[in-house]
Design a protein around this nucleic acid. Sequence first.
DNA 1: CGAGGATTTGATGTGTATCAAACGCGGTGG
DNA 2: CCACCGCGTTTGATACACATCAAATCCTCG
Lengths: 247, 247
Amino acid sequence: MSWPPFDNLCLTPPPEAAAPLGPCLHCQVRHLSVCAVLSHEEINALDTAASLQVLAPGAVLARQGEQRRHVFTVTRGALRLVRLSADGRRQVAGFALPGDFVGLSGAAAHQNDIEALGETELCRFGLDAMQRLGEQFPHLRGKLLERACDELDSAHERMMSLARMNPTERMADFLLTLAARQARAGMPGPSLVLPMPRADIADHLGLTVETVSRCLTALRTRGLIALPGTYRVDILDRRGLETLKAA
Amino acid sequence: MSWPPFDNLCLTPPPEAAAPLGPCLHCQVRHLSVCAVLSHEEINALDTAASLQVLAPGAVLARQGEQRRHVFTVTRGALRLVRLSADGRRQVAGFALPGDFVGLSGAAAHQNDIEALGETELCRFGLDAMQRLGEQFPHLRGKLLERACDELDSAHERMMSLARMNPTERMADFLLTLAARQARAGMPGPSLVLPMPRADIADHLGLTVETVSRCLTALRTRGLIALPGTYRVDILDRRGLETLKAA
DNA sequence: CGAGGATTTGATGTGTATCAAACGCGGTGG
DNA sequence: CCACCGCGTTTGATACACATCAAATCCTCG
């Protein structure tokens, strides 16, 4: 029985759990081992199974339909998970930021293209190694199950966005979610860095590039955000954005 | 550490797995135990932890925000999982049909209202019992993890629908998915029973009732389906529907 | 400095929501 | 048994939000 995998599973650790543990042997970053709240024995086993990988901007880590062989933790940069339909329609299923866990799903093949947004560093685990670890440490599976459940909840949340929110509301929601993730990854504060171009945001939110652009300027005009650069957003009025999104 | 839960986890068994095992002691239906491909010991433990529950049409099984205490397997009838936003926008996150597993999520509280669509029968498991079983049989967690992964995959699939398909395509997708689920549950054939009213379909697909109605008549006009009754759909041209959805 | 691509801004069209009304059907009471 | 009522569904007319098409601007990099 093969070890059950994820696509875009976010295993970002809660900050408090990170404190007592050292970084990964390979990538010098506190990653999966930290997140899963494992014993030191388990952590060492995980870190030993890992190896480092660096991707150039735009590099392709996996293609839709390809056999899955590894799972990854992003340690620097960012990935996008892209789904293309037969007639060329594109959807960005999600983005993986530092601390996120990527590359697994219920299927034997990748469900998404996985591409590096900038120069990106990963910590890689072989599927077979993960399976062994899962058998060796049942606890690990329990932790991963919790994570999967969280991921499911957030997937339902995003469905609500796509189904029932207008473009501006989706944009506000997106910015707040991204801000929360950057905060969890240790970069709090109102200043956001968007690692992806507008087209990816559009395909993530089910909009067009033009609409994304218009929504951003609308939010700026309302004084909710500032746009100091193409890839930077400062959140000026968090409350205002939250009101919009909840609306 | 509390046992990790799901919302709308579908544990419908693959037909071949169901054969060698008997029905649940309580509800006479092959449910979770069958799905998870467990040992007989595990199955008995699960079934012993279960109890039967019957809901009248429209009955509320859980409310958004309520503390979670049980998980359920639907054995007859159907449930809808509904999410309401502050300003009254409504989304149906999913439907649970016989064989589906429901009521868990990463959170301590229910994320959705759960309501019976018709008279509905459930098999109920206490969360504490599930936690004990998970500790006792690590295998169970592995199986549930697999299921969670599958559920995540299908969630991504539905996001693609919501983000990038037009109403008719979503409708075709919905009908095919429903047909596949009824087939898995042992009712194959082109004749579909919709356990839910149009409004629920609309809120599931991010549309209005009017649009749902128009899409159905459009599919009928094209000769892809027949509508022998408000709650019945016959699939006349499966290929045609698949072409639409894939488009 | 110039070229190419990404982003923004502008003008127009269309698909779906919205508003409104008719229809069908099941249940109830006469 | 039939007439009536209420609700869900279907059908129709209209409005508008966002997509589409087109062009200007900005930014990056050679």
